[in-house]
Amino acid sequence: MKSKIFFVFILLLFHSCSVNKYSNVPVQDEIDLSLKSFTEIKKEETDKKSKDITLGYFWGIGKDMYPTFEKHTFEIPKSYQRNENNFILKVDYFFTKDDQTKFKLYEWNENEKIETSHEMFNEKFHEIKKYITENLGKPYLEVYEDLEKSKEETVRDDVEWHSKNLNTFLFRFRGKSGFDQIRLAIYCD
């Protein structure tokens, strides 16, 4: 009898693994709070088997996200898409001619191959916030908008951390039509 129950359990386990091949990747495996040389970052992205999705031309970042953007002369930004999980994660890197990475932008989007629910985005947002708070301390600013009360179709939640060596901005966009997106900007200077 015990062997039959064990056999059924194993079958259910294999079935559940094959049904959902996607999973939530822990943020400590996704986010690097350091600003390494771009050469090191490129090697890490290659080792992770990330897909290079660089646009091939220069594009910029607004002052609201990176106030000192205009103080630097950047190479063409490099963009990578990480292997699929519950989310599609894209990371953009801005670096100078002398290989210094000055700005990173992480962006979590819906994985259309599975149903990425509002709850999954909510959990990921709070997981990211907790991870950064554990590493950088209490947020400098937190602003949350009420989607139900808003006259706008899309609202934005903001959390900011400022430390001696790093500035970090976490944004979450939520829409009445079901739109969800999380962005994390990291820079120093």
Rank of each mutant, 00 (worst) to 15 (best):
M1Y: 06
M1S: 14
S3D: 00
K4M: 11
F7H: 01
F7W: 04
F9H: 00
F9N: 00
S16H: 01
C17I: 09
C17R: 04
S18P: 02
V19S: 05
V19L: 10
N20W: 14
Y22A: 03
V25D: 02
P26A: 13
I31Q: 02
D32I: 08
L33C: 05
L33N: 01
T39H: 10
E45N: 09
T46I: 15
K48H: 09
S50C: 13
S50R: 08
I53A: 05
K63L: 14
M65P: 02
T68W: 03
E70L: 15
E70D: 15
K71G: 13
H72D: 14
T73V: 15
E75V: 15
E75Q: 11
I76Y: 06
I76Q: 03
P77C: 15
P77Q: 09
S79M: 13
Q81V: 05
E84N: 06
N86P: 02
N86W: 05
L89Q: 04
K90V: 15
V91T: 15
F95V: 04
T96C: 12
K97H: 14
K97C: 08
D98P: 02
K104P: 01
K104V: 05
E107I: 05
W108L: 05
E112H: 07
K113I: 14
K113F: 15
K113T: 12
I114H: 01
T116Q: 07
H118G: 03
E119W: 06
M120T: 02
F121V: 05
N122Y: 06
H126F: 15
I128P: 00
K129N: 07
K129C: 08
T133Q: 04
T133L: 03
E134K: 10
K138T: 09
E142Q: 11
E145N: 11
K149A: 11
E153F: 08
T154M: 06
V155M: 10
R156G: 02
D158C: 06
V159N: 01
E160M: 10
E160I: 11
K164L: 05
L166F: 07
L170R: 00
F171T: 10
R172M: 13
R174A: 06
G175C: 14
K176L: 14
F179Q: 11
R183A: 14
L184D: 02
Y187Q: 02
